[in-house]
């Protein structure tokens, strides 16, 4: 049985009320969603909040999943929407949101507090992830989201364009800009170290 078929079997069982199937389904995707949230938000508490909101959304809408698309695409679409909502809420709570200089407007902006990564990501064995988060931190939320979807989730430019409701060319431009910015940050880091 393929992973897609297994997903569908688990969804069917969960819809019939099997808590075991639900838990198994959550276990399959929780790590991907959590790490996705971690790279987007830059801190574990926001990543946990995002993950819990995503699975709550999945639970509420599970009966609407028709199997036309892959469950993984569906769940990442929910994750994207929740991240947009979360960012919007944070924007409302903070007085002076920081806009990116390269990209104008857009759904995403930087999450509050992302400049100050949590200590657990600055110390010890998390050094590599800390460095990557620091690099991603230099990106605007739009760029960060596209890098996340393209590099880590392996979505195509067209899929990202559909997800973010922008043109594929805009996605390509933002992705390349993001890579250039990451290159600059990486070179700066190398010079400093």
């Amino acid at each position: 049985m393929s992973l897609v078929d297994e997903d569908e079997a688990l969804i069917a069982a969960a819809l019939k009320g099997s808590a075991y199937a639900w838990e198994k389904l959550v276990k399959r995707y929780e790590s991907k969603i959590y790490n996705h949230g971690l790279r987007l938000t830059g801190n574990s508490s926001d990543a946990m909040d995002l993950m819990q909101e995503v699975f709550l959304g999945v639970y509420r809408n599970l009966h609407r999943f028709r199997g036309d698309a892959k469950f993984s695409s569906w769940i990442f679409r929910i994750a994207h929407n929740k991240a947009v909502d979360m960012n919007r809420r944070k924007r409302l709570m903070t007085s002076s949101p920081k806009f990116s200089s390269e990209d104008e407007g857009g759904e995403f902006e930087k999450f509050p507090g992302q400049a100050n990564l949590e200590p657990e990501y600055r110390l010890g064995s998390q050094e590599l992830n800390t460095r990557i988060l620091a690099m991603l931190n230099a990106l605007s939320m739009d760029q960060r989201s596209i890098v996340e979807l393209k590099v880590f989730q392996s979505l195509t430019f067209d899929e990202i364009a559909e997800l973010q409701d922008i043109s594929a060319n805009t996605v390509k431009t933002r992705f390349y800009s993001a890579l250039k910015k990451l290159k600059v940050v990486s070179e700066k880091e190398n010079v400093l170290s």
Binding site: S31, Y34, N35, L38, R39, S44, Q126, L128, N129, I132, M135, L136, V147, V151, F152, L179, L182, K183, S186
Partner: peptide, 11 residues
């Protein structure tokens, strides 16, 4: 740079 960030270790 792309390869660099792909070294992310799953938390």
């Amino acid at each position: 740079v792309q390869r660099d960030i792909q070294q992310w270790q799953e938390q």
